[in-house]
């Protein structure tokens, strides 16, 4: 305990930390993960890439990309995916950070809250989609019954079929299921911030906002970046929940990239076009996540 305190106090001092030298040793640590990923992902990636430039006659060409980029439905789906991801990730962050701070603090029964706030995460996303669809069911849905019994609405709401309500219902369910991940990862991050820093800040007369701003946030920075990066990628790939809840409907209003790729591949048998769409999706994601990569590799 004392050892940590002393070291941690030193950490905030001006002395710049030494970095271990031998890169070869570093590569040894990294190797198992990298080799495994190369082994299992290079072949599928090349297959996809090749399919995406294979034309009906067997020649190679980029026509599928041309079709893709000129299809208004593709761009509509890109916009919808972006809206879905931005809304989900920001709500996850807001609720996750709030919940993590709250249960790490001095509230009563925080052990209980810690378990409660985790619960939605143990429900598989497909199952979460089905359960919410059941709650919002147009005939037997309990939420409408509750709202009507409480005289909050006088007509059942069309949660899953109203063109502007359906995307919101989807986000409602996705936030429910997804915020615990951010909470848990931030809660773990909070545990790693040395208690002394808070004590030192308090001694300096810092209020709770200042402590949050100058101790908590910087201490969480790396973990926060990781949580955001992973959550963003994860929400772009989100498939089961959307497929189970709305199947992309009404019409195509809740269609996202992952459900579109699935449809094109497994229902319309357009393997090449679906591959082109997947490659486009990867490129888009790559562009979005480059800043995250830079941030995570930044030196303090």
């Amino acid at each position: 305990m004392h050892g940590v305190s002393r070291a941690a106090t030193g950490w905030i001092g001006p002395r710049r930390a030494l970095r271990l030298r031998e890169p070869a040793v570093g590569y040894l640590f990294v190797a198992p993960a990298v080799v495994l990923l190369i082994a299992v992902l290079v072949y599928p990636a090349l297959t996809t890439l090749r399919l995406s430039v294979t034309l009906p006659g067997g020649q190679l060409g980029v026509q599928h990309y041309g079709q893709l980029l000129s299809d208004p439905l593709f761009w509509q789906v890109v916009r919808q995916t972006a809206a879905f991801v931005v809304a989900s990730v920001s709500a996850h962050l807001l609720l996750g950070l709030g919940a993590a701070l709250a249960v790490a603090g001095t509230v009563p029964a925080r052990g209980l809250f810690r378990v409660v706030a985790l619960l939605p995460w143990v429900v598989p996303d497909v199952v979460a989609g089905i359960v919410w669809k059941w709650i919002l069911n147009p005939l037997y849905g309990v939420l409408n019954d509750l709202l009507m019994a409480g005289r909050l609405v006088d007509q059942p709401l069309e949660w899953l079929t109203h063109p502007s309500l359906a995307p919101l219902s989807l986000i409602l369910a996705n936030v429910w299921r997804g915020f615990p991940f951010v909470m848990v990862i931030l809660l773990a991050g909070l545990q790693s911030i040395p208690q002394d820093l808070y004590e030192a800040a308090s001694l300096d007369g810092a209020g709770s906002w200042a402590r949050f701003r100058f101790v908590t946030l910087p201490g969480l920075r790396k973990v926060l970046v990781v949580a955001l990066a992973l959550d963003t990628i994860w929400e772009v790939r989100r498939f089961g929940l959307v497929q189970a809840m709305t199947g992309g409907g009404p019409g195509t209003l809740t269609e996202v990239l992952s459900t579109q790729v699935f449809k094109q591949y497994f229902q319309f048998y357009r393997f090449e076009y679906a591959s082109a769409m997947a490659v486009a999706m990867t490129v888009l994601l790559l562009a979005v996540s480059l800043p995250y990569v830079r941030m995570i590799m930044q030196e303090e």
Binding site: R19, L20, R21, E22, P23, V25, G26, Y27, F29, V30, A33, V34, L37, L41, P44, A45, T48, A229, I233, V236, R237, F239, L257, S258, V261, F262, Y265, F266, A274, S275, A278, M281, T282, L285, L286, S289, L290, Y292, V293, R294, I296, M297
Partner: peptide, 24 residues
């Protein structure tokens, strides 16, 4: 902990492997 020249690239690569949709 190690100053890997390919570090940024590899971290990026590792993340990229997650971007292909599972269906494919």
């Amino acid at each position: 902990r190690f100053p890997l020249r390919a570090g940024t690239f590899l971290m990026g690569f590792i993340l990229t492997t997650q971007m292909l949709p599972g269906v494919l």
